[in-house]
Design a protein around this nucleic acid. Sequence first.
DNA 1: ACAACGTACTATACACTGTACGTTAAGGAG
DNA 2: CTCCTTAACGTACAGTGTATAGTACGTTGT
Lengths: 220, 220
Amino acid sequence: MSDTKPRTPRNTLNPDLIVQTALDLMEAKGTDGFSLRGLAGELGVGPMALYTYFRNKDELYDAVRDHLMALVPDVPQDLPWPDQVRFVCRGLRALMLQHPCLAQLLASRPLSGNETARVAEGLLGVLRAAGLEPEAAARTHTTLFTYVLGATTWEIQMASERLDPDAWRRLRTSMESLSAHEFPTVVELAPELARTTGGDEQFDYGLDLLLAGLEARRPS
Amino acid sequence: MSDTKPRTPRNTLNPDLIVQTALDLMEAKGTDGFSLRGLAGELGVGPMALYTYFRNKDELYDAVRDHLMALVPDVPQDLPWPDQVRFVCRGLRALMLQHPCLAQLLASRPLSGNETARVAEGLLGVLRAAGLEPEAAARTHTTLFTYVLGATTWEIQMASERLDPDAWRRLRTSMESLSAHEFPTVVELAPELARTTGGDEQFDYGLDLLLAGLEARRPS
DNA sequence: ACAACGTACTATACACTGTACGTTAAGGAG
DNA sequence: CTCCTTAACGTACAGTGTATAGTACGTTGT
């Protein structure tokens, strides 16, 4: 009977549960709205309980990132190598679009963890099998990764801007207030720029450019 | 005599002074260490004084971004167009490396402001003059911009990781602890990956890939 | 069976953050 | 001189991550 204190029972927490709940929260309330206190509250636990499993917020972020990277599918082996490259890059982009927090997690922390290594292994293996020398394979891998990162980060950023009607209208008016005399090309291409910001076609356009450059470079 | 309160005299503040001081602070203490209170303190003023000139922190960020974009040089007119593209992209990257906060400012806010438009005008003009159709010019502009953004953001991120010897060593050991059986290519290419992360050569490699793809695509 | 121990969690506290709200005084206009 | 706009102020609020110390539980050794 001794109702000393309604202490939460032990072993209610574990890393996987924390990571999964953190991920859910990030998607529900946005990456910036995520906080350790909010996460602890969701788990029915004091904020400091999380420090039993993660040394700090950044380490939790790393765990969430690796948890997400596990969802990048493996490369199919029965495709020409440029299509394999497309498969990996599109898969990573699709995952970033589905989990916008992944973009920030990838951009703000170094790559580490087994699942991240698995994705790198897939792409690097494709490039090596395509006949690229070690240095070219490494450079190409970094190029492709940073392109996917930049393009998709930008896409997510623009999409989230469109969601806030106030910010979106202010952006439109600031665009329209540009001097057509000072910036003729920007004003002329404004519709195209707005239309080509984001979307599968835009992403594939840049990706194909990189692949075309790769093929043009190799004797093959 | 009435020494009521040592109020700071009026008109000590103006937008340019605030922006310049904010920029100095961001470079001195890092983008994350920057705070409105710190900025106000540096200016010898209460935190709320800043709200006379900027509606919130984001608007101040926008002003700092545009202030920095003014430092991107204009495109020289007497060059072949691929070199003009290189000039703009390298110029933007150089500025981002010199002012690391610019990377975050570009990635986290939409593009607006006259100086930002000026840079876009320069690159778009080059692409149009090179014979690209409006849509292709817009797509290429977005591709180039997102590549520069992603590549340079990543470069800055990696460089700052190297500065913290503790984080750097943890990254090395986590790399070395990867199973050579599970990730043979990653382990094999680890030295190349480490060497090709960042640097002018890596940036130009990707940029040249994009330009080669562009030239291969156009009849010319 | 009972005491000891490590561990999982809690409580409190600190030094911060951005900013909403209301106040006050300086400078210019009438 | 008075009035009014406005630049800067002070206070307060609801947050943040996390350092430090304390507490109750489950397991283990005897």
